[in-house]
Computed example of a mutant assay.
Amino acid sequence: MPPESASELYKILFATAVEFIRSQDQDLNQPSRMNFDRVRAIRTSDHRHHFGHNYCVSTKPLFQGARSVEDFLAHLNAMLPKIDTWDTDITDIAVDEPRKMCVVRASYFMKPFEVNEPVENDLVWWLWMEDGGKKVKKAMEFIDPMATGRIRELMMTGGK
């Protein structure tokens, strides 16, 4: 929760950051187990998704370039059939009001099918909001390359 003394803009930016992360929660009421309309709703129509760290991205074509909302959803949709469960724990949120930007640290506990224990992917998101602060226009996702590699390995081997 934001501090009680926070300004209205701070509270809006904070809530937008939380909804951005929560929009990707597992939703068992959806055929894909993720509510893609919810993912779209928190992003602007011209939203761009980027990956970081620069060296990691330079060595992995999958992470290169900016993605539209639909490109990002296609990326997620390719993973979802291989992931049994995923839970998210938001660790911290820093809000920069003048720049309408938030930095979010979150752990994604991803468990591919036929795996007993989830793998923790500790991520940092940089989020830039549109002028009103209620939608994200740009996101940069900094992944844990070791955890991402392990999750990919488990998805491809069925947990073996």
Rank of each mutant, 00 (worst) to 15 (best):
E97Y: 05
G65Q: 12
D89I: 15
A94E: 14
M110Q: 07
L127F: 08
Y55V: 15
I90D: 08
M110V: 12
F63G: 08
D122W: 06
T88G: 09
M110W: 00
V115R: 06
M101N: 13
P61K: 06
R105F: 09
I151H: 05
L123W: 01
I151K: 02
F51S: 08
D144H: 06
R150E: 14
F63L: 15
N121C: 10
G65L: 12
R67C: 04
F109E: 13
W126N: 13
P98H: 09
N116M: 12
S107H: 11
R99Y: 09
T59N: 10
G65Y: 13
P61F: 07
N121K: 00
P112D: 00
D92F: 04
N77W: 04
L80N: 05
P61L: 09
I93P: 08
A78K: 11
T148H: 09
V115F: 04
M129I: 02
K134L: 03
E114Q: 15
E97M: 05
F109C: 13
I83A: 13
L76D: 09
E70M: 01
E70G: 03
Y55N: 11
I151W: 02
T85Q: 06
S68T: 12
K135Q: 13
A66L: 10
H47Q: 01
E120C: 13
N54T: 14
K82R: 13
N77L: 03
P98F: 11
E70N: 06
A94Y: 12
H50P: 00
V95D: 05
W128A: 08
P98G: 08
D89F: 09
R48A: 08
E97I: 11
A78M: 08
A78N: 09
R43D: 01
K137L: 07
M79C: 10
N77P: 00
I90H: 11
V104A: 05
D46V: 00
F109P: 13
T91V: 11
R48I: 12
A106T: 14
D46L: 02
M146G: 06
V95P: 01
P61G: 07
P118Q: 14
A147F: 02
D71I: 03
L73F: 03
P145R: 02
